[in-house]
Design a protein around this nucleic acid. Structure first.
Length: 277
DNA sequence: CGTGTCACCTGACAGC
DNA sequence: TGCTGTCAGGTGACAC
């Protein structure tokens, strides 16, 4: 459940389920998910508090308890489930929040890559927060061509690496980067230094389009073993290239090919995305 | 400072 | 059936 549209879908679902719920108790079964506090501190800070809002920035989920915020990153496989307290603990449930109404919120993470940080709400975008180094979301009004150009100054890595770098734009992951590059007619190996103003304009426009459409469809569900909290999206039917190796390009009928770019599985249409123009 | 590599974990799947 | 290697929608630490 990792890229911006999937996290947004989780946010909306949680908003309906856990707003105004009060935490009675917390069980932590795997310590390393909690980064800035010991599990004991984590428990004592949150127990007795009431959830006042659920937000999101980039791929981070923000569970607000008034003046403090639980900043959660789902990484590769993090999921939240909302269940009755008497449900048995499942193998990959690592943190369980017990609410005063007899329900629980359970953090489930097969690979244990996810993270949680407690931050003062006032410090959310300061150095004390994991959000401090993130770039703008693509649909932010301030995410202009000039902003992007300034961020990629001195960078000569492939454009795929640029779009995966959360300190430049935040929210895109491997799926949506492949889609944005396809829609922008850009080969993923194109060097950042070779991007024209028009290329950047296209990248920003297509990032916004793809993310908004994916949010509308509830995100993308690929390789999802279980249907997590509100995360059975429908955007997978809209994909042009990602996960479509061997299938025909929806625009020109050429076969989609898979390669590796900046260490990541990468899908392109070799006709629509030429290396040089 | 920028870039490349590896580490963090577990499970699914392909090939022998 | 096993075993082994590879891969997975992400990021952070580290060496150069």
């Amino acid at each position: 459940v990792p890229e911006l549209p999937e996290v947004e879908t989780v946010r909306k679902t949680l908003q309906d389920l856990i707003l105004q719920k009060t935490v009675r108790d917390i069980d932590v079964f795997y310590d390393r998910i909690i980064r800035r506090n010991t599990p004991q501190e984590f428990k004592s800070i949150l127990e007795g508090r009431t959830i006042t809002d659920i937000g999101r920035y980039g791929k981070y989920l923000l569970i607000h308890f008034d003046d403090i915020t639980l900043v959660s990153h789902l990484r590769m496989e993090g999921k939240f489930y909302y269940k009755e307290a008497d449900n048995p603990k499942e193998k990959h449930e690592h943190i369980i929040f017990y609410f005063t109404n007899g329900m629980t919120l359970r953090y489930h993470d097969t690979r244990k890559f996810g993270t949680m940080d407690i931050v003062q709400t006032n410090d959310l975008y300061s150095e004390k927060s994991p959000l401090s180094n993130l770039g703008l979301e693509p649909f932010d009004k301030r995410a202009t061509v000039t902003y992007f150009q300034q961020k990629i100054r001195n960078k000569r890595i492939p454009v795929k690496g640029i779009l995966l770098d959360q300190t430049i734009l935040t929210g895109l992951g491997n799926i949506y980067v492949d889609e944005v590059l396809f829609l922008s007619h850009l080969h993923p190996e194109t060097k950042a230094t070779e991007l024209t103003k028009l290329d950047i304009k296209n990248i920003l426009l297509n990032s916004t389009k793809v993310l908004n459409k994916a949010i509308k469809l509830g995100g993308t569900t690929i390789r999802s073993y279980t249907s997590s909290l509100g995360v059975t999206g429908r955007f997978q039917n809209e994909l042009y290239v990602h996960m479509r190796k061997g299938e025909k390009c929806k625009v020109c009928n050429t076969e989609i090919v898979k390669s590796k770019v900046v260490g990541r599985g990468t899908y392109i249409c070799p006709k629509c995305q030429k290396p040089t123009r």
